[in-house]
């Protein structure tokens, strides 16, 4: 980090925050603050939806995922366009007709108050935790590679987001997201072209793809029905539709983005925009990771990209073994480099199979390094992350990009963290104000009272997110824990919404009782480890719908006999 990097980084972040705060000062009422005065055009909604979903981890972790496992992760997004169409056709017209502020408000109209309150509370629990992790995840990585103070970084990110989100509400969130997306794409495009330009002179872009293909990184599609492969065409189409439907259709941090639209048409076009661009965007981010992989076929790389992990093992009794592994890795690298150059010119099968052999050695070495890190963790009673995919891209950035561009790429990562956190705080506040505070606790006050309450709730959730991020290092693998908590609640909530939209036969009492029973069973299913946690989503959704039907049938029969 040089002076120029600091100027670019601080200049970018502060000017976005200042512009967003100044431009959206003076919300007149709650509708202005929560729905942005219903003025948003389709492209604002589209960018806002994409900026909310793309967090810092998208840009840190996805290239690392491609570096290690290739392009297959793009399949995870194949269901998203299908979900967009379902939401456009079914969810948006109903949300719009009822003029709701939150998705859960719709459930009171369709079922009853207790179902609305239950889903709102489930949302607040999981999204409140997730907002803390949205800040924590990039902060822990950046503090490890740059030596910054972790808690100070968390507090700075949190305060920057709080400033404009509290003052301007939804409008401030969407205005800043447009600029953040501009920074993100500028930075990523520059990084991509620089990586390609850093390759040896005789390695063109297509030759780089040949080299990536020889190492199996270009296996984009997997049509097998293998449950053990997390990312296949089928899991993307089925599981991806399901997850996107619950995220974009029932999670207030996304629903609030399109509810700010001027009309049904603008809202629908915003989601269509997302459905058109999401897959190419993820493909591009993964391609950046593949190019980083090719770069490291011609430039030496550490055996594990996480500097904290390397430090841990070098300060343990396994240091010598680890150094031997790194030396072996350097030998493999030199041999592979020759082979890669030869393969780029000839593309012969014989060389490809030699490359595959060396890749196996490379993988075995990296896994052996991970084992040593785990052993060093045990010896020193630490819990350092052994999986280094979050560190690959940032390692490349810090060690290879020129002055000024390091600052720009750090601004990309922090902008992505801020754009997601802002949407989350904004939605947490709206749900607290409209679904709980105004609905059940303090009714019949004037507009100004609820506007102030919304601002205070935004501030409170922001402070809570900072606190969660600051204590997050205490939990082992907290990011996975948040995903598990999401899986425990998400399926149930989606099931409730599907019953609301598609099954008029089911009434409020049946849904509420079914939701409580389902939640208890899903938590038991997680506790006793009945299935991989991602499947709890599907299980919870199917269960709540099945139980609600049974209860409704029993209720109907009792009514007939009465």
């Amino acid at each position: 980090m040089q002076t120029l990097d600091w100027v670019v980084l601080i200049g970018t972040l502060v000017s976005i925050v200042a512009y967003g705060t100044w431009k959206t000062r003076g919300s007149k009422n709650v509708e202005d603050y929560i729905k942005g005065g219903n003025e948003a055009k389709w492209w604002t909604i589209g960018l806002s939806v994409m900026a909310t979903q793309a967090s810092a981890i998208t840009f840190l972790s996805t290239p690392g995922q491609a570096f290690h496992d290739g392009m297959g992760f793009v399949q995870f997004y194949f269901g998203l366009p299908i979900a967009m169409i379902i939401i456009c056709l079914v969810f948006i017209p109903l949300y719009y007709r009822l003029k709701v502020y939150t998705a859960y408000e719709f459930l009171e109209n369709r079922f009853d108050l207790k179902t609305r309150s239950l889903t709102a509370i489930l949302f607040l629990i999981q999204r409140g935790l997730a907002a803390g992790i949205t800040i924590y995840a990039p902060a822990i990585i950046l503090s490890a590679v740059l030596g910054w103070n972790l808690n100070l970084l968390i507090i700075i990110i949190g305060i920057l987001v709080i400033i404009y989100t509290v003052s301007g509400g939804t409008k401030a969130v969407s205005i800043t997201q447009k600029q953040q997306m501009a920074v993100i794409f500028t930075g990523m495009f520059i990084a991509f072209f620089l990586i390609v330009s850093y390759l040896p002179e005789n390695i063109t872009f297509t030759k780089a793809l040949d080299i990536a293909g020889a190492s199996g990184k270009m296996d984009i599609l997997d049509f097998s029905f293998d449950f053990n492969n997390r990312y296949t065409f089928w899991s993307g189409i089925i599981g991806g539709t399901f997850l996107a439907l619950s995220y974009f259709g029932t999670d207030q941090s996304q629903v609030q983005r399109y509810l700010s639209g001027k009309s049904v048409k603008e809202m629908q076009m915003g989601l269509i925009f997302n459905g058109l661009l999401k897959v190419p965007m993820q493909f591009f981010i993964l391609l950046v990771g593949v190019m980083v992989f090719v770069f490291y076929q011609f430039n030496s790389s550490p055996i594990n990209f996480n500097p904290t992990a390397t430090k841990t093992v070098m300060n343990s009794s396994y240091a010598e073994e680890y150094e031997q592994l790194q030396n072996q890795q350097d030998e493999i690298f030199l041999k592979k480099k020759e082979l890669m150059t030869a393969y780029a010119d000839t593309k012969t099968e014989a060389i490809a199979s030699q490359i595959a052999n060396y890749n196996d050695g490379d993988r075995a070495n990296r896994n052996a390094a991970k084992d040593l890190i785990s052993k060093a963790n045990k010896e020193r009673v630490l819990s350092v992350e052994t999986n280094d995919k979050d560190y690959v891209f940032i390692h490349f950035i810090l060690n290879n990009l020129p002055r000024g561009l390091i600052g720009l790429l750090l601004a990309v990562i922090l902008s992505a963290a801020m754009s997601s956190t802002a949407s989350e705080l904004n939605a947490l506040s709206s749900t607290t104000t409209m679904d709980l505070y105004k609905r059940s606790f303090v009714q019949n006050k004037n507009e100004n009272h609820y506007l102030k309450a919304s601002k205070w709730f935004t501030l409170a959730w922001g402070i809570l997110a900072i606190l969660i991020a600051c204590v997050a290092y205490l939990a082992d693998n907290l990011i996975q824990l948040v995903n598990i908590i999401g899986s425990i609640f998400y399926g149930n909530v989606l099931g409730i919404f599907l019953l609301a939209f598609f099954f008029k036969y089911i009434k409020g009492n049946a849904v509420f009782v079914a939701a409580l029973i389902t939640q208890a069973i899903v938590i038991a299913g997680w506790w006793y480890d009945w299935m991989p946690y991602l499947w709890l989503n599907v299980f919870g959704c199917a269960l709540v719908m099945g139980i609600a039907f049974i209860i409704q049938i029993i209720n109907s029969l009792q009514d007939e006999h009465a």
Binding site: P81, L221, M269, I272
Partner: peptide, 30 residues
């Protein structure tokens, strides 16, 4: 009119189908 909406939903599905076909050819080429 409804017709225009059908067009934009068809556009999303067709565009994504084209992406997948492109991915298939990229995968086969490299």
């Amino acid at each position: 009119p409804k017709e225009r909406w059908k067009k934009s939903y068809t556009l999303v599905l067709v565009a994504n189908a084209i992406y997948i076909v492109l991915f298939y050819f990229i995968m086969k080429s490299f």
